[in-house]
Protein backbone atom coordinates (compact mmCIF):
# COMPACT_ATOMS: atom_id res chain seq x y z
CA UNK A 1 0.00 0.00 0.00
CA UNK A 2 1.54 3.28 -1.05
CA UNK A 3 1.50 6.34 1.07
CA UNK A 4 -0.89 8.20 -1.20
CA UNK A 5 -3.57 5.55 -1.02
CA UNK A 6 -3.51 5.29 2.74
CA UNK A 7 -6.71 7.36 2.74
CA UNK A 8 -8.98 7.00 5.70
CA UNK A 9 -6.44 4.84 7.50
CA UNK A 10 -4.64 8.09 8.06
CA UNK A 11 -7.22 9.06 10.67
CA UNK A 12 -6.61 6.29 13.23
CA UNK A 13 -2.91 6.53 12.43
CA UNK A 14 -2.83 10.25 13.18
CA UNK A 15 -4.82 9.70 16.35
CA UNK A 16 -2.37 7.01 17.43
CA UNK A 17 0.43 9.45 16.81
CA UNK A 18 -1.51 12.07 18.71
CA UNK A 19 -1.87 9.88 21.76
CA UNK A 20 1.91 9.66 22.01
CA UNK A 21 2.89 13.14 20.85
CA UNK A 22 0.03 15.27 22.10
CA UNK A 23 -0.32 13.09 25.16
CA UNK A 24 3.20 13.74 26.43
CA UNK A 25 2.60 17.25 27.81
CA UNK A 26 -0.68 16.07 29.35
CA UNK A 27 1.17 13.19 30.95
CA UNK A 28 3.85 15.30 32.61
CA UNK A 29 1.53 18.08 33.71
CA UNK A 30 -1.07 15.68 35.10
CA UNK A 31 1.53 13.67 36.99
CA UNK A 32 2.90 16.94 38.40
CA UNK A 33 -0.56 18.10 39.36
CA UNK A 34 -1.31 14.69 40.86
CA UNK A 35 1.78 14.93 43.05
CA UNK A 36 0.83 18.45 44.13
CA UNK A 37 -2.79 17.66 44.84
CA UNK A 38 -1.87 14.58 46.86
CA UNK A 39 -0.35 17.02 49.34
CA UNK A 40 -3.67 18.83 49.62
CA UNK A 41 -2.97 21.93 47.51
CA UNK A 42 -4.24 22.65 44.03
CA UNK A 43 -1.98 24.31 41.48
CA UNK A 44 -4.07 25.86 38.75
CA UNK A 45 -1.08 27.80 37.45
CA UNK A 46 0.53 24.89 35.62
CA UNK A 47 -0.61 26.39 32.31
CA UNK A 48 1.82 29.23 32.97
CA UNK A 49 4.49 26.74 34.07
CA UNK A 50 3.97 24.75 30.88
CA UNK A 51 4.47 27.86 28.73
CA UNK A 52 7.52 29.00 30.67
CA UNK A 53 8.95 25.49 30.40
CA UNK A 54 8.33 25.38 26.66
CA UNK A 55 9.98 28.76 26.15
CA UNK A 56 13.02 28.12 28.32
CA UNK A 57 13.62 24.67 26.82
CA UNK A 58 13.49 26.10 23.32
CA UNK A 59 15.66 29.09 24.17
CA UNK A 60 18.35 27.02 25.90
CA UNK A 61 18.32 24.39 23.19
CA UNK A 62 18.79 27.13 20.59
CA UNK A 63 21.51 28.95 22.52
CA UNK A 64 23.57 25.94 23.60
CA UNK A 65 22.66 23.45 20.91
CA UNK A 66 21.80 20.86 23.51
CA UNK A 67 18.12 19.95 23.70
CA UNK A 68 18.61 17.87 26.85
CA UNK A 69 20.05 20.89 28.63
CA UNK A 70 16.87 22.64 27.50
CA UNK A 71 14.73 19.97 29.13
CA UNK A 72 16.58 20.36 32.42
CA UNK A 73 16.29 24.15 32.25
CA UNK A 74 12.55 23.83 31.63
CA UNK A 75 12.26 21.77 34.78
CA UNK A 76 14.28 24.27 36.78
CA UNK A 77 12.24 27.21 35.43
CA UNK A 78 9.13 25.27 36.46
CA UNK A 79 10.57 24.82 39.94
CA UNK A 80 11.12 28.57 40.24
CA UNK A 81 7.48 29.26 39.44
CA UNK A 82 6.48 26.43 41.76
CA UNK A 83 8.46 28.01 44.59
CA UNK A 84 6.61 31.28 44.08
CA UNK A 85 3.26 29.50 43.99
CA UNK A 86 4.06 27.43 47.06
CA UNK A 87 5.17 30.45 49.05
CA UNK A 88 2.13 32.52 48.08
CA UNK A 89 -0.47 29.84 48.68
CA UNK A 90 0.81 29.18 52.16
CA UNK A 91 0.24 32.73 53.30
CA UNK A 92 -2.81 33.11 55.49
CA UNK A 93 -6.09 33.95 53.73
CA UNK A 94 -4.61 33.53 50.28
CA UNK A 95 -6.77 31.43 48.02
CA UNK A 96 -4.86 28.87 45.96
CA UNK A 97 -7.28 28.96 43.02
CA UNK A 98 -6.87 32.74 42.69
CA UNK A 99 -3.10 32.47 42.96
CA UNK A 100 -3.28 29.81 40.25
CA UNK A 101 -5.04 32.23 37.91
CA UNK A 102 -2.45 34.89 38.72
CA UNK A 103 0.33 32.40 38.01
CA UNK A 104 -1.19 31.57 34.62
CA UNK A 105 -1.05 35.25 33.65
CA UNK A 106 2.39 35.75 35.18
CA UNK A 107 3.85 32.55 33.70
CA UNK A 108 2.56 33.29 30.22
CA UNK A 109 3.77 36.89 30.57
CA UNK A 110 7.27 35.69 31.45
CA UNK A 111 7.25 33.16 28.64
CA UNK A 112 6.02 35.57 25.95
CA UNK A 113 8.24 38.41 27.13
CA UNK A 114 11.48 36.46 27.28
CA UNK A 115 10.53 34.18 24.40
CA UNK A 116 9.95 36.95 21.84
CA UNK A 117 13.44 36.66 20.27
CA UNK A 118 13.10 32.88 19.88
CA UNK A 119 9.96 32.78 17.76
CA UNK A 120 11.87 32.92 14.47
CA UNK A 121 15.01 30.76 14.86
CA UNK A 122 14.76 26.98 14.90
CA UNK A 123 16.27 25.15 17.81
CA UNK A 124 17.75 21.65 17.79
CA UNK A 125 15.02 19.15 18.63
CA UNK A 126 15.19 16.16 20.92
CA UNK A 127 16.30 12.98 19.13
CA UNK A 128 13.55 10.45 18.57
CA UNK A 129 13.66 6.64 18.61
CA UNK A 130 12.63 5.51 15.16
CA UNK A 131 10.77 2.27 15.73
CA UNK A 132 9.04 2.36 12.36
CA UNK A 133 11.96 1.52 10.07
CA UNK A 134 10.40 -1.90 9.31
CA UNK A 135 7.56 -0.21 7.47
CA UNK A 136 7.80 1.21 3.99
CA UNK A 137 4.96 3.66 4.55
CA UNK A 138 6.32 7.10 5.46
CA UNK A 139 3.30 8.00 7.58
CA UNK A 140 3.71 4.86 9.65
CA UNK A 141 7.38 5.67 10.12
CA UNK A 142 6.40 9.17 11.14
CA UNK A 143 3.98 7.86 13.76
CA UNK A 144 6.55 5.54 15.28
CA UNK A 145 9.10 8.25 15.88
CA UNK A 146 8.83 8.08 19.62
CA UNK A 147 10.36 10.59 21.93
CA UNK A 148 12.41 9.41 24.89
CA UNK A 149 10.44 12.00 26.88
CA UNK A 150 7.25 10.08 26.19
CA UNK A 151 8.87 6.85 27.39
CA UNK A 152 10.18 8.68 30.44
CA UNK A 153 6.66 9.86 31.24
CA UNK A 154 5.23 6.40 30.76
CA UNK A 155 7.85 5.01 33.14
CA UNK A 156 7.18 7.76 35.62
CA UNK A 157 3.53 6.81 36.13
CA UNK A 158 4.12 3.36 37.72
CA UNK A 159 7.12 4.81 39.54
CA UNK A 160 4.90 7.43 41.13
CA UNK A 161 2.31 4.83 42.07
CA UNK A 162 5.06 2.89 43.83
CA UNK A 163 6.33 6.11 45.42
CA UNK A 164 2.95 6.91 46.96
CA UNK A 165 2.28 3.35 48.01
CA UNK A 166 5.57 2.07 49.31
CA UNK A 167 7.92 4.84 50.29
CA UNK A 168 8.15 6.88 53.43
CA UNK A 169 8.04 10.15 51.50
CA UNK A 170 4.98 9.03 49.60
CA UNK A 171 3.25 8.26 52.85
CA UNK A 172 4.19 11.66 54.25
CA UNK A 173 2.68 13.44 51.25
CA UNK A 174 -0.50 11.38 51.45
CA UNK A 175 -0.79 12.02 55.18
CA UNK A 176 -0.42 15.76 54.71
CA UNK A 177 -2.98 15.72 51.91
CA UNK A 178 -5.53 13.48 53.57
CA UNK A 179 -5.38 14.50 57.16
CA UNK A 180 -3.21 17.52 57.96
CA UNK A 181 -4.15 17.36 61.64
CA UNK A 182 -2.92 13.82 62.00
CA UNK A 183 0.24 14.68 60.10
CA UNK A 184 0.86 17.65 62.34
CA UNK A 185 0.30 15.48 65.39
CA UNK A 186 3.12 13.12 64.42
CA UNK A 187 5.43 16.06 63.87
CA UNK A 188 5.45 16.48 60.10
CA UNK A 189 6.03 20.02 58.88
CA UNK A 190 3.04 20.57 56.60
CA UNK A 191 4.35 23.72 54.87
CA UNK A 192 7.63 21.98 54.08
CA UNK A 193 6.00 18.88 52.58
CA UNK A 194 3.57 20.95 50.52
CA UNK A 195 6.34 23.25 49.37
CA UNK A 196 8.34 20.28 48.12
CA UNK A 197 5.31 18.64 46.50
CA UNK A 198 4.36 21.83 44.65
CA UNK A 199 7.94 22.43 43.49
CA UNK A 200 8.36 18.84 42.32
CA UNK A 201 5.02 18.99 40.53
CA UNK A 202 6.02 22.21 38.79
CA UNK A 203 9.31 20.61 37.76
CA UNK A 204 7.34 17.92 35.93
CA UNK A 205 5.05 20.52 34.35
CA UNK A 206 8.11 22.41 33.11
CA UNK A 207 9.34 19.23 31.44
CA UNK A 208 5.89 18.85 29.90
CA UNK A 209 6.49 22.28 28.39
CA UNK A 210 9.82 21.12 26.99
CA UNK A 211 8.05 18.26 25.24
CA UNK A 212 5.83 20.82 23.51
CA UNK A 213 8.63 22.95 22.13
CA UNK A 214 11.31 20.30 21.58
CA UNK A 215 9.27 17.29 20.47
CA UNK A 216 5.76 17.96 19.27
CA UNK A 217 4.80 20.34 17.68
CA UNK A 218 8.46 21.22 18.15
CA UNK A 219 8.27 24.97 17.72
CA UNK A 220 8.03 27.93 20.04
CA UNK A 221 5.16 30.32 19.49
CA UNK A 222 2.71 32.11 21.70
CA UNK A 223 -0.03 29.72 20.69
CA UNK A 224 1.89 26.56 21.48
CA UNK A 225 -0.16 25.62 24.49
CA UNK A 226 -3.89 25.82 24.20
CA UNK A 227 -4.99 25.10 27.70
CA UNK A 228 -3.21 21.74 28.13
CA UNK A 229 -2.03 22.85 31.55
CA UNK A 230 -5.58 23.49 32.65
CA UNK A 231 -7.05 20.42 31.09
CA UNK A 232 -4.47 18.46 33.02
CA UNK A 233 -6.03 19.71 36.25
CA UNK A 234 -9.40 18.38 35.15
CA UNK A 235 -7.70 15.22 33.98
CA UNK A 236 -6.35 14.52 37.46
CA UNK A 237 -9.89 14.62 38.83
CA UNK A 238 -10.97 12.23 36.09
CA UNK A 239 -8.00 9.98 36.93
CA UNK A 240 -9.06 9.92 40.58
CA UNK A 241 -5.61 11.06 41.69
CA UNK A 242 -3.99 7.83 40.54
CA UNK A 243 -0.80 8.13 38.49
CA UNK A 244 -1.54 5.09 36.31
CA UNK A 245 -4.94 6.48 35.41
CA UNK A 246 -3.30 9.81 34.64
CA UNK A 247 -1.29 7.95 32.03
CA UNK A 248 -4.37 6.44 30.35
CA UNK A 249 -6.28 9.72 30.51
CA UNK A 250 -3.35 11.62 28.97
CA UNK A 251 -3.26 9.21 26.05
CA UNK A 252 -7.01 9.67 25.57
CA UNK A 253 -6.67 13.44 25.59
CA UNK A 254 -3.72 13.40 23.23
CA UNK A 255 -5.82 11.36 20.82
CA UNK A 256 -8.79 13.72 21.13
CA UNK A 257 -6.52 16.62 20.32
CA UNK A 258 -5.36 14.97 17.13
CA UNK A 259 -8.90 14.42 15.88
CA UNK A 260 -9.36 17.80 14.18
CA UNK A 261 -6.08 17.86 12.22
CA UNK A 262 -6.46 14.15 11.35
CA UNK A 263 -9.88 14.67 9.79
CA UNK A 264 -8.62 17.73 7.96
CA UNK A 265 -5.74 15.77 6.46
CA UNK A 266 -8.15 13.34 4.80
CA UNK A 267 -10.11 16.21 3.34
CA UNK A 268 -12.87 16.47 5.91
CA UNK A 269 -12.67 20.20 6.43
CA UNK A 270 -16.31 20.63 7.40
CA UNK A 271 -16.38 21.54 11.07
CA UNK A 272 -12.59 21.51 11.41
CA UNK A 273 -12.68 24.24 14.03
CA UNK A 274 -15.36 22.45 15.98
CA UNK A 275 -13.31 19.26 16.09
CA UNK A 276 -10.52 21.35 17.58
CA UNK A 277 -12.75 21.83 20.58
CA UNK A 278 -12.95 18.04 21.07
CA UNK A 279 -10.52 17.83 24.01
CA UNK A 280 -12.31 20.61 25.88
CA UNK A 281 -15.74 19.12 25.29
CA UNK A 282 -14.39 15.73 26.31
CA UNK A 283 -12.97 17.17 29.53
CA UNK A 284 -16.22 18.93 30.32
CA UNK A 285 -18.28 15.81 29.57
CA UNK A 286 -16.04 13.71 31.79
CA UNK A 287 -16.34 16.20 34.62
CA UNK A 288 -20.11 16.29 34.30
CA UNK A 289 -20.25 12.51 34.41
CA UNK A 290 -17.80 11.95 37.23
CA UNK A 291 -18.63 14.78 39.62
CA UNK A 292 -21.46 14.75 42.08
CA UNK A 293 -23.00 17.58 44.10
CA UNK A 294 -23.53 15.52 47.22
CA UNK A 295 -20.27 13.83 47.98
CA UNK A 296 -16.62 14.51 47.46
CA UNK A 297 -15.18 12.43 44.71
CA UNK A 298 -13.85 9.03 45.67
CA UNK A 299 -10.09 9.11 45.88
CA UNK A 300 -9.76 12.84 46.45
CA UNK A 301 -7.18 13.88 49.03
CA UNK A 302 -9.07 14.82 52.16
CA UNK A 303 -7.61 18.29 52.62
CA UNK A 304 -7.96 19.34 48.97
CA UNK A 305 -9.86 22.59 48.65
CA UNK A 306 -10.01 23.24 52.36
CA UNK A 307 -8.14 25.93 54.20
CA UNK A 308 -6.20 23.59 56.42
Amino acid sequence: MAAETIGWWGVPLAIAAGTMRGGTPFLFVSLGECLTEKSGKINLGLEGTLLTGAMSAYAISYLTGSPWLGVITAGVAGMALGLLHAWLTQQPRVNDVAVGIAMIIFGSGVAFFLGKPFIQPSAPQLPTLNLGTWSSIPSVQEVLKISPLFLLGVALAPLMTWFFKSTRWGLLIRAVGDSPDAARAIGISIPKVRMLAIIAGSFLAGIGGASLSLYYPGIWSERISSGQGLMAVALVIFARWQPMQCLYASLLFGGAQALGPALQSVGMTQGYYLFNAAPYILTLAIMILTCSPNRTIFGAPGALGTDS
Binding site: L230, Q270, Y272, L274, N276, A277, L284, M287, P293
Partner: peptide, 27 residues
Protein backbone atom coordinates in the same frame (compact mmCIF):
# COMPACT_ATOMS: atom_id res chain seq x y z
CA UNK B 1 -26.58 20.13 40.02
CA UNK B 2 -23.45 18.17 39.22
CA UNK B 3 -20.84 19.63 41.56
CA UNK B 4 -18.56 20.41 38.62
CA UNK B 5 -15.76 22.78 39.64
CA UNK B 6 -16.85 26.13 38.18
CA UNK B 7 -13.33 27.47 37.70
CA UNK B 8 -12.25 24.64 35.46
CA UNK B 9 -15.54 24.29 33.59
CA UNK B 10 -15.75 28.01 32.87
CA UNK B 11 -12.20 27.99 31.61
CA UNK B 12 -12.84 25.02 29.34
CA UNK B 13 -15.87 26.83 28.00
CA UNK B 14 -13.62 29.72 26.97
CA UNK B 15 -11.85 27.42 24.56
CA UNK B 16 -15.14 25.99 23.33
CA UNK B 17 -16.46 29.52 22.69
CA UNK B 18 -13.34 30.44 20.74
CA UNK B 19 -13.62 27.26 18.67
CA UNK B 20 -17.26 28.13 17.98
CA UNK B 21 -16.27 31.63 16.87
CA UNK B 22 -13.56 30.24 14.58
CA UNK B 23 -16.03 27.78 13.14
CA UNK B 24 -18.61 30.48 12.42
CA UNK B 25 -16.29 33.06 10.91
CA UNK B 26 -14.56 30.44 8.77
CA UNK B 27 -17.79 28.74 7.76
Amino acid sequence: YRGVNETISSLLMNYIAIALLNHLVNG
